[in-house]
């Protein structure tokens, strides 16, 4: 109650001039812009924690199945192209950097810098999805998408898959183990697919922010939206850092 009394009292004293005393973006249930920004940042982190739990379930499933069906997961992993994976990691890390620069531009009131940073982030995000779609196309061509048309050929007869065989010299898997490669690809598509969905949503929001930033938004003190979107974008980057290690790198031998 003391708070509301104070506000009511203040409003009575200053009359209709209350809006001149604070920035227009300060909501009346916050005492200061700092408190408002802290609350928004805290809420964003709580959202990211739910995201950690969401992806955490997928990571845990991957860990358990990899231990159960280890040979299938190794052979499945050998189907992924490390060059594309590395390139995508670089693209995403650089996009995180351009996003961080965007946050700095917003904080220091640089409108053109902000628009440029957000645009570069958007282009790099699209580049990531482009490379991902090249990889998905390879899987579709080889019938490595789980479902009715899934093909075990690369795993029952590795020599028929020349490009992969020349690099890894995999031994043929027994039929029941070869079937478990479908579990690997289910998790591969689930994890990279959910990650890509986050990227697509992020790119949509980036487009919206570029549109607003061009009109002068975010650079006159109210930077919360850009900062919190930055947290989201960096979080998606972190998920990829782990996906890259788990899906592409750890099963190469």
């Amino acid at each position: 109650m003391p708070d509301s009394t104070a506000i009511a009292h203040g409003a009575h004293e200053t009359g209709s001039n209350t809006h001149d005393e604070h920035p227009p973006y300060l909501r009346h249930h916050f005492e200061s812009t700092e408190q408002q920004a802290d609350a928004a940042g805290f809420a964003m982190w709580l959202f990211l924690l739910t995201e950690v739990m969401f992806f955490g379930g997928l990571f845990t499933a991957y860990l358990i199945y990899r231990n159960w069906y280890y040979p299938a997961f190794v052979s499945g992993s050998h189907q992924l192209n490390v060059v594309w994976g590395t390139l995508n990691t670089l693209v995403l890390i650089i996009s995180s950097f351009t996003m961080a620069m965007g946050v700095w531009c917003a904080e220091t009131g640089r409108r053109r810098g902000l628009v440029l940073s957000l645009s570069l982030t958007l282009i790099l995000g699209l580049g990531f999805l482009g490379i991902k779609s090249i990889e998905y196309a390879e899987k579709i061509e080889k019938h490595h998408v789980p479902g009715f048309h899934y093909s075990l050929q690369s795993f029952l007869d590795p020599q028929s898959d020349r490009a992969v065989f020349s690099e890894y010299h995999d031994k043929p898997l027994m039929l029941d183990m070869a079937r478990h490669t479908e579990v690997y690809f289910s998790l591969y598509f689930l994890m990279t697919g959910m990650h890509a969905l986050h990227m697509i949503i992020g790119i949509g929001i980036l487009g919206f922010m570029i549109f607003r930033a061009r009109a002068g938004a975010y650079t006159s003190g109210h930077v919360t939206f850009v900062e919190n979107f930055g947290l989201y974008w960096h979080f998606v980057d972190i998920i990829w850092i782990y996906l890259f290690a788990l899906l592409y790198l750890i099963s190469r031998h």
Binding site: M99, H234, F235, R252
Partner: peptide, 21 residues
């Protein structure tokens, strides 16, 4: 191999969380 890959990934993630975020 997995230990090193995850250790490097965790180092990278920590840098992102501490500085970018």
């Amino acid at each position: 191999n997995p230990v090193i890959a995850l250790a490097i990934a965790t180092t990278k993630a920590t840098l992102v969380v501490l500085f970018f975020m």
